[in-house]
Amino acid sequence: MKEDLILKVKNLSVQLEGEKILENISFEVKEGEVLTILGPNGAGKTVLLKTLLGIFPYKGEIIWKKDIKIGYVPQRLPFIKNVPMTVEEFFKLKDVSKKETENILKKIGLSEVLEKEVGKLSSGQFQRILIGWALSKDPQVLLFDEPMTGIDIKGEESIYSLLGKLKKERNLTILLVTHDLSVVYKFSDYVICLNRYPICQGKPREILTPEGLEKLYGQEVKFYQHTHQEL
């Protein structure tokens, strides 16, 4: 693998319970890049992220740079409300010291929640905590799965400016799943449009033309009739 590459994916296909979810995906990610995965509901975006994390079996190649540390920000964590746990204790689950937790909370602008119960945070606060949690222990790559609901527009903007800030500070590589085109224009270096198989990929301004978008989202209605909910 070339030196500045963080991730190389070649002919990736994923089949879950007999159903083809992803087919023939190939792309490369360089160090410090922001890669956005774009596509309609049920296109397999979350499955792609989880496959890259090693959660699902696959065919093809996924090659990460050697000894890479990955931070994962899931869409939601519904079961966390079953457990009385402070933010500090949540970070402790992955052996993050109190001092590092305090530093991270400061960075994400939530110093005041250290001893607050995780289940009682607002959805915007909780998402920041998930990002902070993923960033503790200094990963080189962040995999961010954007939630579809629960965050207001104002909150959402600040999440991306936060991500931008953190990326600059740490030379993070970010793989991002989103529905939001404006995020793609502002934030990412490379885009993959996905609807089970790759529709198009390249730099945002080259790809996200009216024709390109029609190709991607024009199929959405058809796909709604055939697919199950996004995993």
Binding site: K50, L53, P74, I80, L93, K94, L143
Partner: peptide, 17 residues
């Protein structure tokens, strides 16, 4: 306990870790 609780909260997150 810590790892098990993480698994109970989200197996995906645990696997990612």
């Amino acid at each position: 306990y810590s790892k098990m609780l993480l698994i109970n909260i989200s197996e995906d997150l645990a696997k990612a870790e």
